[in-house]
Amino acid sequence: MTAHLTAAEQRTRPAGVAVSDLTVAFPAGGRELPAVSHVSLDLTPGKITGLVGESGSGKSTLALALMNAVPKPGLVTSGSVHIDGIGNVLSLTGSGLRRVRGPGIGYVFQASQNSLNPLKTVGKQLLDLGRSHGEKNLRGLLRRARELIEDMGLDAVRVLSSYQHELSGGMRQRVGIVFALLLNAQVLVLDEPTTALDMLSQASVLEIIKRVHRDLGLTTLVISHDLGVVGELADRTVVMYAGRVVEEGETQGILRDPRHPYTRGLLAAMPRITGDLELARALPGRPPDLLTIPRAGCVFRERCPLAMPVCADSEPPDTLSGGRRFACFAAAGSAGATSAGHAETEAAS
């Protein structure tokens, strides 16, 4: 219903994103192996959502599906991604998609600090981006680029005339964010934005993300393997494991009282700067990859301290309890909460 609003009107209200029943599969050995399996998820307009998971959890695949950009041979086999003002991204093709990628969703890729063209200055590459999206007002585009670069605490003249190797890791990461926001995206997706950075650069990039998110009124998704990064940034947190959302809720609540044994395990396995180190516990086993994800039952049961016989038979349904969603038989039993077959009940409330 927001489809007929002008771009300026849309800026005043952040766009929401609704992922529903999304499955992305990769064919292997005559079978289709789901990297993302029946995921439903809302990005609340104007909020920062954190997506936590280890390698192979499907978090990057899910994020790419938001732009209908799942790399081949991956295939979306079910579900939809609905963005306010755009509609179902998964039904778009060709030029329709081009209008989403960039102007709709700004994407900061994993290792984006290494994804600049080493042979062109940053300014030239920003102009290329504008031209490839049919932007006529290149002068205006450069003005916006200059503003964005200065917003990030960098010297615009220097950055625009620099080549990739002349910028530090933290600076390149910020340039990546400039690229994502240049075409006035309403939704910003950042895949591991601080992974290769040291603590000080990480802290300043996190501050910048918070600031542009607030100042530009964005809906932001931050993907990280680090609960600390998500804890520092996100209003809501989504925990993924083996292609499933295992827990979702308000960040502080999840950190204070994690319900799913995997979230608990991740939190316990983080060495902390204060408190008793002997409380830190390693998670047993290792995260599964596409080939080793258990085919039936709960995907976490092999590493789970609370596993019960039922966990081997069927996949735990989502349990909703006080704004929290988690998929665990044991935690549901102790919560005494209402079990909902699907997350849509929560989305409707």
């Binding site: 603590m199 802290a203 996190l206 804890g231 520092e232 960040t251 204070r256």
Partner: peptide, 10 residues
């Protein structure tokens, strides 16, 4: 100071 703070428990 740059170490992320786990808001909610810290």
């Amino acid at each position: 100071s740059a170490i992320p703070v786990l808001r909610g428990i810290e």
